[in-house]
């Protein structure tokens, strides 16, 4: 199963990469759904000693929530506001892809230096989790549309989940479920907020929010 989990991890990293270079919002949401599904599958594959009921539950929860429900909410949100593309990112798509490559490099360096417990499940888990985390952050930084910010946030959260998977064997599943619920509620609320921003400013550029301050 080792190879399969490696392939899944590479897929997860590539999905993040794809989202960085994609201007279509629908495409991004689809990608994040795929990434969520992969994440859901991962705990099943990664464990060598088979799996218990808890892991099954977590996997099912992840799969449904991140792979189905959250993308639904998001696509509902953009259908309402009728925006299809991220038109004016702060940093262009090619440039952000380049930065993404750079970040993957950094995360491999960091992962090699990170003092981790001995028996990590697969060697790729930590670097991939770090790079997904950083790419999520990058997405939040370079994009201005509220929807892409939410997608960046989700990606960021996926990275954190992966990292947690790396260091905890018996994942306290109640906490995991709690986190999942939190993320879902957050995205739900953001979906609503996006609608309101769109209604108030006729666009969902977060730059408009700056004007709300002093």
């Amino acid at each position: 199963m080792q190879e399969l989990s490696q392939i899944l991890l590479v897929l997860i990293a590539l999905f993040s990469f794809y989202a960085l270079g994609n201007s279509s919002l629908i495409g991004c949401i689809k990608i994040i759904a795929l990434q969520g599904m992969c994440l859901g599958l991962l705990p099943l594959i990664i464990d060598r000693q088979g799996f218990g009921i808890q892991i099954l539950l977590i996997a099912a929860g992840m799969f449904i929530l991140k792979g189905v429900l959250i993308p639904r909410v998001l696509s509902y949100a953009i259908r309402e506001v009728k925006i299809r593309r991220e038109m004016e990112p702060l940093i262009g798509y090619n440039a952000s892809l380049l930065i993404g490559v750079f970040l993957i490099g950094i995360s491999f360096i960091l992962a090699s230096r990170l003092p981790l417990p001995e028996n990590i499940r697969t060697s790729l888990l930590v670097p991939v989790s770090l790079s997904v985390l950083m790419m999520g952050m990058l997405m939040m930084i370079v994009r201005v549309k509220a929807v892409t910010q939410v997608i960046g946030y989700l990606m960021f959260e996926n990275g954190i989940y992966l990292f947690g998977l790396a260091i905890s064997y018996q994942a306290p599943w109640l906490i995991e479920m709690g986190v999942l619920l939190d993320v879902f509620v957050a995205v739900f609320i953001m979906g609503i907020v996006i609608n309101h921003i769109a209604r108030a400013f006729d666009s969902i550029n977060t730059e408009n929010l700056t004007n709300l301050g002093d």
Binding site: L90, M137, M140, I141, V142, R143, V144, Q149, T206, E207, L209, T210, G213
Partner: peptide, 8 residues
């Protein structure tokens, strides 16, 4: 005063 900068 921009969110993106603070994140950066």
């Amino acid at each position: 005063g921009k969110l993106q900068f603070y994140l950066l």
